[in-house]
Design a protein around this nucleic acid. Structure first.
Length: 295
DNA sequence: CATCATGTTATAAT
DNA sequence: CATTATAACATGAT
């Protein structure tokens, strides 16, 4: 296993909380993972927890003190989950919920409001902050707690056969609900689901039975891979104030994505400029173009 | 004051 | 069994 440099280079600047208002779907989760991953190879020297915080509902907070003295070896993401590995049978899983954020700061970082977990290590404080506390943390002591997880939508293993199977298994499910189903499409959330429907030219409420698997798979892959590229890629130009070259800085998809228009008051379709429609579909606020997306 | 928020889960209803 | 609807969770922005 190759570790990242455990000691930051002299130019390293802590990116603080490099988010705008991005709530976490798979790309924002990957960006969050990379904040802590910059400190692979660091050894935890203290574990500060707020035991009453709801993020510990799956795992009593004091249990996390087992991480003291352990080295953060590697990390992974699957869907909206992250896994930080401290040994073959010791992993910390983190889910950001609606408002969770991971960040890093100098080791002497003063606790901010809603910092529920701070892992202080050799060169940095690793911070989990979550004001709504829909997020969660838990410990795993098995070798691979994610062994049985399905393929992620951005993986090549998310095959046409799998997409066809999903459609067959959920024929009456609305398209939007199928995309939001974390067992079917782990990591896709509200904004990517709308983006995929828009690129398919289909109304989010149509039933899965009406879907053509090939274009569905194509757009799922385009949007998830594109989101990772636009949102989670390393910023090489350091054009953002206070950020060192090579740090991971939050970005957004380009203006020809629905993303940039769906929440704006008076937002219009980037293709045809029709006013976007909004309604609740599959329990979530959904934006679509009434001209480009057919029922 | 009321409404809404890019997530998940438990429960009940269909 | 599969699916849908609803409430609940907690805090902040508008």
């Amino acid at each position: 296993m190759v570790l990242a440099h455990p000691v930051p280079n002299p130019d390293f600047k802590f990116p603080g909380t490099p988010y705008h208002s991005a709530m976490p779907e798979l790309a924002e989760v990957e960006l969050a993972r990379r904040q802590w991953a910059a400190f692979h190879g660091n050894t935890i020297t203290s574990v500060d927890v707020h035991p009453k915080a709801r993020i510990y509902r799956d795992c009593p907070a004091p249990a996390l003190r087992i991480l003291k003295g352990k080295t953060l070896l590697s990390s992974n993401a699957h869907g909206k989950r992250m896994l930080f590995t401290f040994g073959p049978g010791l992993h910390l899983e983190v889910h950001l919920g609606m408002s969770g954020k991971l960040s890093t700061a100098p080791v002497d970082h003063d606790e901010h409001k809603h910092d529920h977990l701070i892992l202080r290590s050799t060169n940095a404080a690793l911070i989990f902050n979550d004001y709504r506390m829909f997020g969660r943390v838990m410990l795993h002591d098995c070798e691979d707690p994610w062994a049985d997880f399905p393929p992620q939508p951005q993986d090549s293993k998310f095959s046409l056969a799998r997409v066809r199977k999903l459609i067959e298994r959920h024929p009456k499910k609305p398209l939007k609900a199928l995309l939001l189903d974390q067992k079917a499409c782990p990591g896709i959330g509200n904004w990517m689901a709308d983006e995929i429907c828009w690129r398919l030219g289909l109304h989010p409420g149509i039933s899965a039975a009406q879907l053509d698997p090939a274009p569905l798979r194509k757009q799922i892959r385009f949007v998830t891979l594109g989101a990772l590229k636009h949102v989670a890629e390393k910023n090489q130009t350091a054009s953002v104030d206070g950020f060192a070259p090579g740090s991971y800085v939050a970005n957004v998809p380009p203006p020809n994505w629905l993303f940039q228009h769906r929440w704006k008051k008076g937002g219009t379709c980037p293709k045809c400029k029709t006013d976007l429609a909004r309604d609740t579909i599959a329990t979530r606020t959904t934006a679509w173009c009434p001209t480009c997306q057919k029922a």
